[in-house]
Amino acid sequence: MADLHFLANPARFRRFSQRVLPSLAFATVLMLAVGLYMALIQSPPDYQQGDTVRIMFVHVPSAWLAMAGYALLAGLGASLLIWRHPLAALMARASAPVGAGFCAVCLLTGALWGRPMWGAYWVWDARLTSMLLLFFLYLGHIALSRAYDEPERGDRAAAILALVGVINLPIIKFSVDWWNTLHQPASVARLGGPSIHPSILIPLLWMAATLFLLFVLLVLLRTDTEIDRRRLENAELQA
């Protein structure tokens, strides 16, 4: 009976993901093609930063998705610890590396933006440091979830880390307001509306939507794999 319960939700998830994955992949490729054209060719240079502003179109969406991904991990962690949701642990395993990937893109493209504009690849200001901490939280989550022989124990340890680390999210968001930082304050999600001209804001939001689709695609694909992997592990245990 327990085994049936475990499969109930994952089976429904699998039907859902198999239905949406092909069209999701198609939409992502299409939007990426348009997005790259907007980001690299059609959008104007910035009045201060010139063409370097184009780094923003990957840097900022990656930062958003790295943070959203961690919020997802925390939500999945809570749903595992509180409601013992069978799919939560598998999806958390699947999404942690995706979030870590977007976080790495954010940090590296930020460095490549900082060098020509600020004059430094890296500084230890509050925004950059808290973002680096987010990356290490992701690595910790990945490591913890694989640290035990019984996967369930790893899932729960990682879920606790996800909930503890969620405190870092408001720190990242508001670091630029609470402390003096080299990083500039928020441009899009701020009181008084975005301070970005529409000709630069639209490509930014387009790329954000594109990378969001890619994020969802990766999470669905990898969760599907995790379901299979768990079945394989259960089969090996019984053998």
């Binding site: 910035d46 930063q49 600020w118």
Partner: peptide
């Protein structure tokens, strides 16, 4: 000994700024 430039949160094309 070291100078870092800080840029603000406004982004716009040069024509708009002008």
């Amino acid at each position: 000994r070291e100078i870092l430039a800080k840029h603000d949160e406004n982004y716009m094309p040069p024509e708009v700024a002008k």
